[in-house]
């Protein structure tokens, strides 16, 4: 601690020579007191693990004993050549793309329906629509395993009753279908969350502005397009951010529903790939290289998005 104090003192001396030293040390002491514990934990549980993962990713390491087999970029090379990993990256982007184009608009529509307006029983609808988000991810996945059961699951029975001549599908066993099936569950689970955010955002949209637009002769669609949505801008930007990161970090539902990438590693996301090929196989070095890639993607997106898109929201 004394080393820190000395350093802090030096800095303050250099920066502000005109003011008495004592007050400045007090200020810095206070700051340190507040910042240090948090920063210590942050460093210990976030920064050190990241640095460690980066280090492990350069070794062929099974998790036991010391790091001995340095393989340079061998893990990354192997990653690049592994087809399931490439498809995992594609799938993560696929889920992200559908989330943005289907899930968020759906959440917005429902928020407009039940968040305001004169719909009867909208409070009840609001509650029902939010229920899926309350379930844990594990419970959600297990419920949907029954829904997607290839024999007498709800999905096959329901479609079979509604659509004459519908053939029962192997929702989770067919590689052309499995990602859509998974996306369906993710939408069911998470649209309620975005809907709530939109509803909260709608509270802040002034009725007077919309009314003024109507008086000026705008129809309802125009009011929505030119008044309501722009005013919801910051909420929408936030949900896009959360949705993208959520898509990349999704694990539990995908892992359980696809039983670890079934059929035959055709349905991995980056995170399930990491768990299966990095952890379950005792290849911690290899798994670390996946983690580094996932971390890099998330970090680049996060920084870029915050700097470019969210900037104006912070400035306000």
């Amino acid at each position: 601690m004394s080393a820190l104090g000395a350093q802090v003192r030096t800095i303050t001396r250099q920066r502000d020579k005109t003011h008495p030293r004592r007050i400045h040390f007090g200020k810095w002491g206070t700051i340190s007191l507040f910042v240090l514990p948090g920063m210590l934990l942050f460093a210990l549980f976030v920064l050190v693990p990241i640095a460690k993962a980066a280090q492990y990713s350069l070794y062929d390491w099974d998790g036991f004993g010391p790091l001995t087999e340095y393989v340079k970029d061998g893990n990354y090379q192997r990653l690049y050549d592994h087809k399931p990993f490439r498809s995992a990256i594609n799938h993560s982007f696929f889920i992200m793309f559908l989330s943005l184009t289907v899930q968020l608009p759906l959440a917005m529509m429902l928020a407009l329906l039940v968040g305001r307006g004169k719909l009867r029983g909208r409070k009840i609808f609001r509650m029902i629509l939010f229920v899926p988000f309350v379930f844990s991810e594990i419970i959600t996945a297990i419920i949907w395993m029954y829904v997607y059961h290839p024999g007498e699951g709800l999905a096959n029975v329901a479609f079979g009753t509604l659509i004459p001549g519908f053939e029962g599908q192997t929702w989770l066993g067919d590689r052309d279908l499995v990602m859509y099936s998974l996306f369906g569950v993710l939408t069911w689970k998470f649209f309620g969350f975005h809907m709530i955010l939109y509803m909260a955002g709608l509270q802040g949209v002034s009725k007077e502005l919309e009314e003024a637009a109507r008086v000026d002769g705008a129809n309802e669609l125009q009011v929505l397009r030119y008044v309501t949505l722009p005013l919801l801008g910051s909420t929408i930007r936030l949900t896009i951010y959360l949705s993208v990161l959520g898509s990349f970090q999704q694990f539990a539902i995908a892992w359980i529903l696809t039983r670890g990438g079934s059929p035959a590693n055709s349905s991995h996301l980056i995170s399930t790939y990491l768990y299966k090929f990095g952890i379950k196989t005792f290849r911690l070095g290899y798994g670390s290289s996946v983690a580094v890639v996932l971390f890099t993607i998330s970090l680049l997106f996060s920084l870029g998005y915050q700097r470019i898109v969210l900037r104006r929201d912070y400035a306000d």
Binding site: Y148, H149, P150, G151, G168, T170, W171, P263
Partner: peptide
């Protein structure tokens, strides 16, 4: 059985 790729 029917749909065995999806059964456990």
């Amino acid at each position: 059985p029917e749909g065995y790729i999806g059964l456990g």
